[in-house]
C-alpha cells in the first residue's frame, strides 16, 4: 500500500481524536505533525489508542493483521511514531514485508 493511501487513514484517526479535544487545540492533519516524542501531541496512552485505531483502518483496507506497537517498533533506530510521515513510512514498510 503506497504512502499516499496510508496518510488519509491516519488523518481520519486524527479527525476522530480532534472530536474529543478542545476545539481551539486540534491536532493538525499534516505529514509533519509530531505525534509522539518532542512536541508530540500524544502521551503514551494516547499513542496506544491512536495506533490501535490506525491499525484497524490499515488492516481493514489491506486485509492484513498488522500490529504496529510491538517490540519491532520499539527497537527501530528512529522512533517510527514521531510524526505522521514517519508513521506512514513505517506502515508502508511493514506492509511490504507482510504482503511480500
Amino acid at each position: 500500500m503506497p504512502r499516499a493511501d496510508i496518510v488519509p487513514i491516519i488523518y481520519a484517526v486524527i479527525e476522530r481524536l480532534n472530536e474529543l479535544r478542545e476545539p481551539d487545540n486540534p491536532v493538525p492533519c499534516t505529514v509533519d505533525t509530531p505525534l509522539y516524542g518532542p512536541k508530540g501531541h500524544l502521551d503514551s496512552l494516547g499513542l496506544v489508542s491512536f495506533l490501535l485505531d490506525v491499525e484497524e483502518g490499515v488492516n481493514a483496507l489491506a486485509g492484513t493483521q498488522l500490529v504496529l506497537a510491538d517490540e519491532r517498533a520499539m527497537s527501530q533506530h528512529r522512533n517510527p511514531f514521531r510524526d505522521v510521515g514517519a508513521l506512514a513510512d513505517y506502515i508502508s514498510f511493514r506492509l511490504q514485508e507482510v504482503m511480500a
Binding site: S44, L45, L47, V48, A69, D70, M74
Partner: peptide, 8 residues
C-alpha cells in the same frame, strides 16, 4: 499485554 504500557 501491551509493549508500550504493560497492559491496556
Amino acid at each position: 499485554a501491551h509493549p508500550l504500557v504493560g497492559q491496556c
